[in-house]
Design a protein around this nucleic acid. Structure first.
Length: 168
DNA sequence: CCCTGATTCGC
DNA sequence: GCGAATCAGG
């Protein structure tokens, strides 16, 4: 039974995955038989977009660029510092499906910069590396370990597969 | 060039 | 309603 259409179940998964922050292509790879375009198209038709739903919308207003102001803090791509290869965390683990408290997790960062990184400095990236307000966690880490205990945990968590399919 | 989502428009 | 093609950005 390979009904190729947006059944309730499929739409549900789409919503869930989208809400979890998976990219359209990843979702497309997850749901067989659909391309990322299809996913995006459906997402828009469903009214989901940007993953942010400001319940109120001025009638008539058409905020073309209602995009998210980027993530305030998110490790993304791997970073290479000298001969130290720093891997950004694979995927932030969805705490509890937006159910419990968001958990502020405000830690005392040391605002380390590349110049102040040492073998014992946590190299967890904070912010957007392309911005000037970017810095590293900087707390003390064990020798040989790129992250402090806190971030090492996060970095190791997931066992998810990097599903990056290529459509033809 | 890789990727991302947004929008358009023929079906 | 659907999604490929296209567009715009990183």
């Amino acid at each position: 039974m390979t009904e190729l259409s947006w059944t309730d179940e499929r739409v549900e998964r789409l919503k869930t995955l989208w809400a979890e922050g998976l990219s359209a292509s990843q979702i497309a790879a997850e749901l067989s038989g659909v391309t990322r375009n299809a996913v995006i198209g459906k997402v828009h038709r469903l009214g989901l977009s940007g993953r942010a739903k400001p319940q109120n919308q001025v009638a008539g207003a058409r905020p073309r660029k209602a995009r998210e102001p980027s993530h305030p803090m998110r490790p993304a791509a791997p970073i290479t510092i000298g001969n130290l290869a720093v891997k950004a965390e694979p995927e932030a683990a969805p705490e509890a499906k937006a159910k419990d408290a968001p958990v502020p997790e405000v830690v005392a960062f040391e605002r380390a910069t590349i110049l102040t990184l040492t073998e014992q400095t946590c190299k967890w990236p904070i912010g957007d590396p392309s911005r000037d307000d970017f810095f590293f966690c900087g707390r003390r880490s064990d020798v040989g370990i790129p992250y402090c205990a806190h971030h090492a945990r996060i970095a190791y968590q997931p066992a998810h597969d990097r599903r990056q399919r290529k459509a033809s």
